[in-house]
Amino acid sequence: MKDKAKEILNYLEGKTPIKTGGQKRVYVVNSKKYGKIAVKIGKFDSEKVLERAKRETETQTKIDSPYFAKVYEFLATDREYIIVEEFIEGETLTKRLTEYSEVKDALDLLNHLIEGLKLLWPRIVHRDLKPDNIIIKSNGNPVIIDLGIARLLDHTSLTLSDQGSGPCTPAYAAIEQLTNRKTDIDWRTDQFALGIITSQLLMKGQHPFDPKYIGNRNSYADNIMSGIYKIEVPKVVSELIKKMLGKEPHQRFRKPEPLIEKLNKISEVL
């Protein structure tokens, strides 16, 4: 396995990655075996990082769905791991956030995301849903990427309990992630992030916990932890969004089904 990994690294040497960030870089390659693929390379200096990458691929390997990229291979050298996966053609939702301000369009996208995420829930929680991690394909269908911090609820946690917060993107993290209350993290944590994303869709990209938009001097995380947000969305969806943005997990939808039911009811009256 190490030889093959080294071979891939040698092949990519000198080539330009399409994305770099932190310890990671992503290349797009045409493979004889798989067609157009994304090769994600990450450095690891601890077993924890390697284990997290392994879990990401394990999770994705188990899911065969158009809502997730297919993982073909996982390889590692002594210092780097390589994930070979399907390349998704499209743009991140971040770039297209303003295109969904009609309620129907926003709810259609939310419906699609839930349909995909239901393949993970309740056993697996994505934990890092945000517009950057959603690719909109040319046919309009979303693909959810970066399951790097997805957590199988029956797996041992990779984060120490006494850390201030667990792995997450603070502006999209629910209070239980920000305060690292691991036992409270479940599918409702993803629901909270979806609540933020849906608000952004309906408000032309405006983040509901943005301190400037609210008019306070807090950080995004402070506002999330205090349950301070502002939404200017059509009345027909405001109750739904408020429930999804419930400060505590018990204040959100308990199961995906009632959330979907509510979505369908709203769609019927649109």
Binding site: E176, R181, T183, D184, D186, R188, E248, P249, H250, R254
Partner: peptide, 10 residues
């Protein structure tokens, strides 16, 4: 109380 509710409802 909060932890109890989050647990029970989850």
């Amino acid at each position: 109380q909060r932890d109890l509710l989050n647990w029970l409802t989850g």
